[in-house]
Structures are given as structure tokens and as C-alpha cells.
Amino acid sequence: MILPRIDIDLRKIAHNVQQLKKLYGSKGINIIGVTKVVGGNPIIADVLVKNGIEILADSRISNIIKMRKAGIRAQYLLLRIPALSEAEEVIIHTHISLNSELAVLKKLSEYASRNHIVHKVVLMVELGDLREGIMPSEINTHVKEVLNLEGLALVGIGTNLACFGGISPDAHKMNELSSIVERLEEKFKITLAMVSGGNSANYNWFTSSKDAGRINSLRLGESIFLGREALCRKPIPGLFTDIFTLMAEVIEAKIKPSQPYGEVYQNANGDVPNFKNKGLMNRAVLAIGIQDIIVSGIVPKQNVAILGSSSDHIVIDNTRASLKVGDAVAFDLNYIALLRAFSTPHITKNTIDIYECASIL
């Protein structure tokens, strides 16, 4: 099979979805499956839907189109707030979007009315992480405007934490969000069906809180696919953390000096490297590089060590493994490496289904 490739265990994805639905459902929280980290892969999306995920969220409309064309039946949520220039595509291809800009909401209203569509919107509130979101002091104005826009249905309020500023979605933040929702419902005499408290970083809050307040929805990617919470990257009990394995082929294996020789300048990454002299070393070169993967986000499963990388190559210390040309090195991946792996066409995606058959995309 063509390398490099990423092996995907669909059985373990199904297990994680089932366990997370049971866990969060115990306090009335529905989980939305975030597909951006797997590039909107339709085979994986199908596993999510067949195991009870009703809403799929992605930050790229092209991924949503791919899943819809593959016949994956779900409600589709645009995870990244829409650009003004893509408003028409949002209306045509998605059912729900997260929003924070009135100019964009007005444009969504225009296209929704033109296409005789009622598009659902969730207004995002800024609670300290300083990525997207309406300042709490301005939320009343936005709600009032949206309620008067044709073609739009205000279905919820949400927030995002931990992604940009690393701010924890703790009890204080979640209580604040619940309070905002209750004030809005009372003031405008509305019911907000979706209160989206965040993402995989909400696990610690969830397990330490007696109840979830008004929070009834979370957007989960990392917890589903890597079995971890997203604050400290600790494994969640009962979940698989080894769903994905990256495989890369050895294309050279030779005994060479451990320290480059000659006058040193910047390398391909723009760094001035500094290697210790450890004498002669068994070194191997892999057919994968920073064009394909975030090298700092992968960890070898074999007894080798990454020495460095360039655009198309990773160089490893092969002393203990003694790999030969044609052998493969297996790696675990973190979230950002997984995101890059699914964003490149140069890595084969090999999904293994419940019947242990392989399907290549």
C-alpha cells in the first residue's frame, strides 16, 4: 500500500462516539461531531452519524459539500464564523452557522430570503478567549437585530474558549453563559434551543460540576478522534487514544556522522541547526516532511528518534531499530498533526471498517 499513509480504526471511532454520547448525555448535553480535523472525510462522517451524531460541524464549506455529496444525512453547522464573501454558500450548503457580525448576518438574511430558506444561527459571545464572539455588553443589540431579519432563525447562543487564548471553560465561564441565556430569554420572550458551551476543553468542567446549567451542546473533535480533553491533553477514561497511525517509509539507511560538517547557515526551515557530535550514527531518511505533517506533533512508536526534517524528508536516529530501506515507521499524532495529515493529498487515508476491510481515499 502506498506510503505515507494514515491508518484509521473506524471501530474505535464508533466506540468513542458512543461513550461520549453516554457521558455527556447523563447531564443533558448533546454532542456535535466536528469533522474538520479529518478533512470532512465521508467514511468517518458516516461512522459518526450511524452512532448517533445528528449535527456535523466543519470550518470549511468545501468539506461540508464533500460530505453532503457523499450522501451523509445530517444537519450541517459551519464552525468558523462566515466570511462576508461566502454568505451565499453558507445559506445553500449549511443548516446552521455560528455568527458574531451583524453585517454578515444581514447578508445571510438577504440570501436566505432570496432562496426561500430559513437558516438557523447561533450567536457567539466573547467570554475571554478573544477569538470570535460578541462582547456581552453588546449581545442585546445583536439579538434584537437578528430577530427582525427575514430568513434567519435565532436558535442559540454559544461561546468558544481554550482555542486561542487558552482560557479554561470553567464553572465561572459556563455559569456566565447560562446567565446570559436566561437574561436574553426573559428580555426578548424567546426560547434558545441550543446553548453551546464549547468544545473538547469542557471535559474538566463537566466532570467537576453537579449540573450543566443551561449548557446543552458541545462541539467535539479531539475527544472523539484522540480520546483526550483539550486543556491538558489527558486521556478520557474509557476512550481509545490510538485511532490514527501515521506510516512513513524508509528511503535511505546508512552509517553517517552525527554532526553535519561544513560552514553552517540556515536550513530549509529557516533555523540555524546545532547538533551534538555523537560519532558515527545509523541514520535513516523517511519519505515524509513538513509539507505533509507537523513534525513536532508526531511521536514514533518504534525505538527511533527524530533528528530533524525538511520539506520532504524526516531524518531519524536508526541506531536501535536498524530499519532497512522499504521498512515503515509508525507514529502517533496529536491534534494539529492529524489536522495537517488530513489536509494534504500526499498522505493516503486508509480506513479499516468493522469487518476489517480496507477502504482507501
Rank of each mutant, 00 (worst) to 15 (best):
G308R: 08
I31E: 05
W205T: 11
L20I: 07
N115Q: 12
N277A: 01
S137H: 13
K36C: 03
I96M: 14
S59M: 07
L177A: 09
N334D: 15
S359C: 08
G52S: 14
L246Y: 09
P136M: 04
I117A: 10
I55R: 04
S168E: 15
L77R: 00
S311R: 09
P4W: 14
Y24G: 02
E356P: 07
D242I: 02
A74P: 05
L56R: 03
L152T: 14
I180R: 04
Y203T: 11
V143M: 03
T241V: 05
K36E: 09
I72S: 08
N277W: 01
V250N: 10
I96D: 13
E176I: 06
L84K: 10
Y265Q: 13
I43S: 07
A45G: 14
V195T: 11
I190E: 07
K301G: 11
I190T: 09
E54T: 14
V125Y: 01
D170E: 08
Y335L: 04
G52L: 14
G165W: 06
D292M: 00
M247K: 13
A328V: 15
I96W: 13
G158D: 09
P136K: 05
S100W: 06
S26V: 02
V37E: 07
V304Y: 08
A341N: 11
L102R: 05
F188A: 06
D312W: 03
Y76R: 10
R11W: 00
L338P: 03
D353H: 11
D7G: 02
V315W: 13
T245W: 09
V155Q: 09
K69H: 13
N282D: 14
A83M: 15
P257F: 05
I294K: 10
L130D: 10
G25W: 09
L246P: 09
L218M: 01
I64T: 10
S359E: 15
G25C: 07
L123N: 08
D327Q: 07
H116N: 14
G270Q: 10
G128C: 10
V315C: 12
D317G: 02
E252Y: 01
S209H: 04
I167A: 06
L123W: 01
I61T: 03
I157H: 12
R214N: 04
N99S: 00
L78S: 04
P42Q: 10
A153L: 15
K234Q: 11
S97I: 04
S209P: 06
R73Y: 03
A87E: 08
I224F: 04
R60N: 01
I251N: 10
L98Q: 02
L84P: 00
V37S: 11
M194W: 04
C163T: 08
P136S: 02
S62N: 07
K278I: 11
V118W: 00
I336P: 00
N318R: 05
L338H: 02
N269F: 11
Q302L: 06
P136D: 03
E88K: 15
A337E: 11
I65C: 05
C232D: 15
N63Q: 00
R68S: 03
N202T: 15
L161C: 01
M67K: 01
G151F: 07
E176V: 02
A45Y: 08
I215E: 01
L280D: 13
G213F: 08
K278Y: 08
F275H: 15
